[in-house]
Amino acid sequence: MGVTLAVGTEKGAYLFRSDDARSEWDLQGPLFKGWRVTAFGEAGDGTYLLATGSNWFGAALHRSPDLKEWAQIVDGPAWPDGGERKLTQIWTLNRAGESLFAGVDEAGLFRSSDYGDTWQPLEGLNEHPTRPAWQPGFGGLAAHKVVVDWSNPDRVWVAISAVGVFRSDDGGETWVTKNHGIESTVEDELEGDIGYCVHCIVQDPTDADRLYRQEHQGVFRSFDGGDNWERIETGLPAGFGFPIVLDRASGRLFVVPLESDENRLPIDGEFRVYRSDDGGESWSISGTGYPVAPTFTAVLRGAMDADQRKGIYLGTTAGKVMATADAGETWTTLPWTLPRILSVRVLEN
């Protein structure tokens, strides 16, 4: 079975479709030409979701039955009319059972129970007692990653920059910070467990209590659902990076290390993905196929995804898409050059 890869950029969305071997690709697009495309999702009723943004015209959510014809969802995620809180970007769209979650900037979480037609704010998170201490990171004040426990849909984690990880054990009603073991990035004078610039989190598909976390401060692992975190960087040339992805078929973890939070570039121009075969105990360069010439580009937190069949896909800030169909043994750079890539998502065909 081939793969449909949705790629969102600063200037539109692009769809890549592969053959069964995932070695030959066709490109369709741009869709939403000129719009910033920040996230993709599947609504659960067979339709697809796509989030747009614009410096002029704000953020909105759109639906398509076929990835060709799109209609804006009028009652998409939104802060209340008359308020000062602004929705500037929809960062992530996640489906879990009958629920859809949207993480947004200005930071908040919304849930839909009707396949995305209407959205309700999760007040327990959005009005959390620590909210007065929430501060934006370089990328904004964003709820950018949602993980719903595959073993228990009432347990949900959300990552907010530069705030930290929160966990709900009651289906999103109440939330508790989960950052013990990580150094804070932003000094917090109000609360003791706020100020962590989490970039990405992923849950282990075989152990529901095991999480992995790419943080501004490095790469971390938890064995207890986020209660405690420990650093796991043996073999990495740098701890800084944005995405962290796990392939279910191989059990491998993937990160893209960058030189320091100041520079945010591949070390010495050597663009490399790193992988771990042992749950983060150690890391090594993931296979071959990287650019020979020095390459100074990065992969953003939403721009890497796995098809769970050993296919890993990433998009760079230089507009290149790289793919592997063998869990990172060999990487191929697709021939097209797109605008700056913000989001990469494997869609169900």
């Binding site: 614009s54 002029w56 015209f57 953020a59 909105a60 209340p80 929705l87």
Partner: peptide, 18 residues
Amino acid sequence: PALKVHLYDESGRQRPHV
């Protein structure tokens, strides 16, 4: 109705760069 969110923000004000 899809136009509203693009012309006005949550406060009801016209978007600054429109």
